[in-house]
């Protein structure tokens, strides 16, 4: 297994290069550069920047070189352990993504921390609702939980998230004023105690997390249902029953354990979603996460930030696929990883 892991890790290298190269080329294809908007921006009808100054500016940042040269320079920066400097914010990209004090209390206020928190809560919510439903659906095919799984949850999936977000804001936020819907913390955050702070953040995260969670519930429920059904129908379960084991032990000791394997695959597929922020939900709820950062970076052509986010995404996807495969191999001795 160690050899397998090592080989996979080595192969990840070229894949990673390919991903970043494709992203970089796609980004450079879009016309414009970090300073094109700045040329005529500002208060009032500001005079256009002197073209010689503008060229000089581009040259200083290396933006007038061909794209492969720029890519090479970025790789060199990456190899030296740095993610570069953000063009628009003019500070290190690592600070932009991870916050000023990392690790530590500052992490929560970084875009990555904010997105991870929201996505984690959303995933937990999704699993908390969908797993039990899927489970009971498998135990009683055709029963109430089963109909719930295929009916109500699918109905939820069919609603676009921006629409649901507006609905939640209007009903829960404005009309009934139960939950806040702007940002991650309230103004009084600094003066709150530890538990009060946690509650404050949770209250702010409730609505956006719900928007992110409801769509996937249908799939998780069905997936669980199928996994458990297949497991329940398999030979060893019948054997266990034939041996006279109580149903509880059959279920928990044998069937559920086997259903775990496909669940690992599911988790492996859910992991990458944790770091990518939903652009729509984050901007509707003003949640200071990676999705918002990403949109801003694309509009202002902030290449180092865009690339850093893609790197992060790539690392997480590759890592989680590898992790899922390894876990699968560890959990099921029948699977030979060659």
């Amino acid at each position: 297994m160690a050899a397998y892991a090592l080989r996979r890790l080595l192969l990840m290298g070229p894949t990673f290069l390919l991903i970043t190269a494709v992203v970089f080329a796609a980004v450079k294809l879009a016309p414009g550069n970090p300073f094109s908007a700045a040329r005529t921006a500002g208060e009032g009808a500001v005079r256009q920047m002197n073209p010689a100054d503008y060229q000089d500016l581009l040259h200083r940042y290396g933006l007038d070189r061909p794209w492969y040269v720029q890519y090479g320079r970025w790789l060199a920066t990456l190899a030296s352990g740095s993610l570069g400097i953000s063009y628009s914010q003019r500070r290190p990209v690592s600070q932009v993504l991870f916050g000023e004090a990392f690790p530590g209390g500052g992490f929560l206020s970084s875009p990555l921390g904010a997105t991870l928190l929201l996505n984690l809560l959303a995933t937990l919510l999704m699993l908390a609702v969908a797993l039990p439903i899927g489970f009971s659906a498998a135990l009683k095919p055709g029963g109430a939980a089963d109909r719930l799984a295929s009916g109500f949850l699918y109905a939820l999936y069919s609603l676009p998230n921006f629409w649901v977000a507006v609905l939640l804001i209007l009903v829960v936020g404005v009309h009934f004023r139960i939950l806040p819907f702007i940002g991650m913390r309230s103004e009084a955050f600094a003066s709150l105690g530890f538990w009060e702070r946690a509650v404050d953040v949770l209250r702010h995260a409730a609505l956006p997390a719900l928007c992110l969670a409801y769509g996937g519930m249908a799939y998780v429920a069905r997936f669980t249902r199928r996994a458990l059904l297949e497991s329940l129908g398999s030979d060893f379960v019948r054997a266990a029953r034939a041996r006279g084991l109580p149903e509880g032990r059959v279920l928990w000791g044998h069937a559920a354990r086997n259903a775990l394997l496909p669940m690992i695959t599911l988790l492996g597929l859910l992991l990458p979603g944790l770091v990518s922020g939903s652009v729509i939900v984050e901007s509707l709820f003003a949640w200071p996460g990676m999705g918002q950062l990403f949109m801003k970076a694309v509009y202002s052509r902030d290449y180092p930030v865009i690339l850093a986010e893609s790197v992060l995404g790539a690392v997480v996807v590759l890592g989680s696929t590898l992790l899922a495969d390894l876990l699968y191999g560890a959990a099921d001795p029948r699977v030979r990883l060659e």
Binding site: L11, P14, T15, L18, I19, V22, V23, A26, V27, L29, A30, P31, P272, V279, F294, M295, V298, I306, E309, S310, G313, A314, V317, L318, T321
Partner: peptide
């Protein structure tokens, strides 16, 4: 190993927004 699987993995991580932006342009 060298062509198909990497291509699939690249695609899985590919940020769709760029592509949309480029196509629109």
């Amino acid at each position: 190993r060298l062509l198909v699987s990497p291509a699939i993995e690249v695609m899985l991580c590919f940020p769709t927004f760029f592509f949309i932006l480029t196509v629109t342009a």
